[in-house]
Computed example of a mutant assay.
Amino acid sequence: MPLLSIITITYNAERFLERTIQSLLANQPGAEVEYLIIDGNSKDGTLDIVRQYEKHITRWISEPDRGLYDAMNKGQQRATGDYVWFMNAGDELHDEAVLPKLLNQIRNNPADVYYSDALFVDDHGKALGLRSQITPHVLPRHLNWRDMAMGMKVCHQAFIARRTLAPPFLVDNLSADVDWEIRCLKTAQKVVWLDFVLCKYLVGGLSVQRHRQSLRDRFTVLADHFGVATALWNHVRIVARAVRFRFFG
């Protein structure tokens, strides 16, 4: 059984998928790592790229789905590693040393959740800055689920969870990744901060494209975990924090 399952979700991702695959191959994954690609029945050249790298892919499927989080559930259900790590098309492992360092942690410092910072990049791979520096989300060194009361503290691609405690994703909620992280943290007995950056995160995903719905869905998630009154108050604080960060840094 592999230690780690890396899962990539794709849909019409021919522009970005090869970037993700090559970042994994640069880390020379061995038998301890399985790689899954879950495609939503792409109509462009995505599957040509998948077939080009097929010998490096443990399993892949291409079929219609109900959206991103339905596809992520399919990937999680098919994973067999001790841990699951979602690295979607366009996202990358930060550098060639990430995987060896991560596997060393898993072997010698077993935990339920590992997390770190993420480097934001644009469509062309240009670095925009660390998430903890260019957004209001300060990254805590001792993360617990209550740290998520004002939204996602950790970029989803910089959050790795033990597969047996990872819950299904909410399929019809654009903040399902926030809910997933909170539920993972609620059941985790040991959470480890990694002192190296795990990933490069391609900005401009689904929640950015459908921002208004994403905000409504985030409120639903936070109200479910923290209560309606707390979620209302924290959203006032979120707006104030965003304004403060934008104008005063």
Rank of each mutant, 00 (worst) to 15 (best):
M1C: 11
I6D: 00
I6S: 01
Y11R: 06
R15M: 14
R15V: 11
F16K: 03
L17I: 07
I21E: 00
I21K: 05
Q28D: 13
Q28M: 11
G30P: 06
A31I: 07
A31V: 10
E32K: 07
V33F: 06
L36Y: 04
L36V: 04
L36S: 04
I37C: 06
I37Q: 04
G45V: 02
T46Q: 05
Q52H: 11
Y53T: 07
K55E: 13
H56A: 10
H56N: 12
I57W: 01
T58L: 00
S62K: 03
S62W: 06
P64I: 04
G67I: 01
G67A: 06
L68R: 08
Y69K: 03
Y69C: 02
D70E: 13
D70F: 09
M72L: 13
K74P: 06
Q76G: 12
Q77H: 15
T80D: 10
G81R: 06
A89L: 03
E92I: 03
L93P: 03
H94P: 08
E96N: 14
E96Q: 13
A97F: 13
V98G: 03
L99I: 07
L102R: 03
L102N: 04
A111H: 02
V113I: 14
Y115E: 02
K126D: 14
A127H: 14
S132A: 08
S132M: 00
P136M: 01
H137V: 00
N144P: 07
W145C: 09
V154D: 01
A158K: 05
F159H: 00
R162W: 08
T164F: 12
L165V: 05
P167W: 12
V171C: 08
S175P: 02
W180K: 05
E181I: 11
C184F: 06
L185I: 06
A188R: 06
V191A: 08
D195W: 01
D195S: 15
V197P: 05
Y201N: 14
V203P: 05
L206W: 11
S207D: 11
R212H: 12
R212Q: 13
R212W: 11
R216C: 14
F219N: 10
L222F: 03
F226E: 02
G227I: 12
A229V: 15
L232T: 08
L232Y: 14
W233R: 14
N234T: 04
N234D: 11
V236R: 15
V243K: 03
R244N: 13
F247M: 13
